[in-house]
Computed example of a mutant assay.
Amino acid sequence: MDIKEILDHLPHRYPFLLVDRVISFEPGKAIHAYKNITINEPYFVGHFPHFPVMPGVLIMEALAQAAGILSFKTMGIKPDDNSVFYFVGIDNARFKKPVTAGDQLHLHVEILRQMRGIWKYKAEARVDGEIVAEAELMCAKRDVA
């Protein structure tokens, strides 16, 4: 998926869109996407000026956005103004290495289960093949209108 299709399957926009491309996707199973980390990222101004590091919460958000694409594509629907996917849980989060400008953050997300509108995923973020962060994520679709 290129950026145009990603924008069709996520409600997020700049500066909060954290998926640049989807490399592979298997409905109901898994997705592999990536985010290019550049020195122009707005969070680097304050985190940290002397050693720019991507905040761990944004790595988790990038994984959640990849999970969102996986879920929407699996269900065969697109986001709309009437509902949203919320983060409802993060279990076993681990941060193993800092992510810095110039890195390409690969997002690997696998569906563990889906029940009563709650989705659970196994998620790993990698740079150069090494795991930099991992967690089990939970998201739920909720009507907002």
Rank of each mutant, 00 (worst) to 15 (best):
I69K: 01
A123K: 02
G76M: 09
L58N: 08
H47A: 12
L107A: 08
F95Y: 13
P55L: 12
L105V: 04
K78H: 12
A67R: 01
F25C: 07
P27N: 14
T74C: 08
L63Y: 07
A133T: 02
Y121S: 03
M60A: 11
G56F: 04
T74P: 04
R126N: 00
P42H: 14
G68I: 04
V53M: 11
I39P: 01
Q104W: 02
R113K: 14
E110P: 00
F44Y: 10
P52R: 11
V109S: 07
P79C: 12
H32E: 13
W119H: 04
M54H: 03
P42C: 10
V144T: 15
L137K: 01
V99S: 03
A67G: 14
N40L: 07
V88W: 08
M75V: 00
P42F: 14
Q114R: 05
F95K: 01
A93E: 05
N40K: 08
M54L: 15
V45I: 14
E61Y: 06
K120Q: 12
A62M: 08
S83L: 08
P11L: 11
M54R: 01
F95V: 07
I59R: 00
D91W: 05
K96P: 04
E110W: 02
L63N: 04
K96R: 15
I39E: 10
V99Y: 07
N82F: 09
V84A: 13
A101S: 15
I118Y: 03
E130G: 00
E134I: 02
G76R: 11
E134R: 05
G129P: 07
Y14T: 08
R142M: 14
F16R: 03
E61R: 08
K97D: 07
M60L: 15
F85S: 06
I90E: 03
G129F: 10
I90K: 01
M1T: 10
G46V: 09
R13L: 08
L137T: 04
E110H: 05
F51Y: 15
L63V: 08
E136K: 03
D8C: 10
I3M: 13
G129A: 12
A123L: 05
K141E: 14
T74Y: 04
D91H: 08
R21D: 13
E41M: 10
P98Q: 08
L137A: 04
F85R: 07
G46K: 09
K120C: 03
A135G: 07
